[in-house]
Amino acid sequence: MAGDAGRLRAALRGWALVSPTAIYAVALLAIPLGTVLVVSFLTDGRTPGGLRTVLPVATIANYIEVWTNDIYRFLMLRSLAVSMSVTLVTVVLAYPVAYYVSFHVAPNKKALWLFLITIPFWTSYIIRVFLWKVILGFNGVVNSGLLSLGIIDAPLQAINYSVQAMVMTLAHAYAPFAILPIFVALEKIDRSLLEAGQDLGESRLMTFLRVTLPLSMPGVIAAVLIVFIPTVGDYVTPDLIGGGKLPMIANAIEVQMLKLNSKALGSALAVSAMLIVASVTVVFLLLNRRFLGGGR
């Protein structure tokens, strides 16, 4: 009994301490997300005065619109294609960097290397995205540089306002998010396992494939999710790099929410997008469940 009372007291103390932050997150995250869910089942309309508003009339018409309109399906598929490409490119490019810092940098230099890697991430995101437009644009750095060197006669069209340019920009923006979790997972690997593998006659490559890579998978999985989920909802890159010609789902949400003031339809779009992202995430985690669990 005394143990139970002590545990209850400890629990109460923990709850009391975490409560200001928890209440804030409930009030400004959980309740707003719930509100969006409710609004997505209401109707966009006008007040008697003619202003755009949400009328309290329950309907699933917004979802029918979102799930049957070809435009939204196309934008969602483009968003998924872009963010999956970004995730693949970012994680594949980041892995060797994380590996190098974890396995080949002296312990007292590791923090400095990580600091160097994270600095670009802390500079204004919109300015960085705009700079990629400057680099890859029609009159951009690459084209004007190649022209003035006489390598090409006319600006390359392919690198301008393309999906590839968006993937490149986002892969740059999310690089540290991929490197850090993989680095943390690599740091946790017991180095004697690798020596054991090589003592038992495995080549360095086989040791990497059979020991290091599987053990670092929790970091790779974290990197995939932390890149994939936010990039599906990216707004700035399609707007600036795509020049407004290659919108993704977040741009459609912005148009409905602000420009057309159709909050119910915009909410249904957002809820649908979140459901799709959540489903993809769950499938991905199930496919990789053998690497997770038991590893902590």
């Binding site: 932390i226 977040a250 949400i253 909410s267």
Partner: peptide, 19 residues
Amino acid sequence: LIMLPLVLPEMIVAMSLLV
């Protein structure tokens, strides 16, 4: 829940707060 905004797209945070 407290750490969720770290992975949530900012568009979702922005539009849900607006609503």
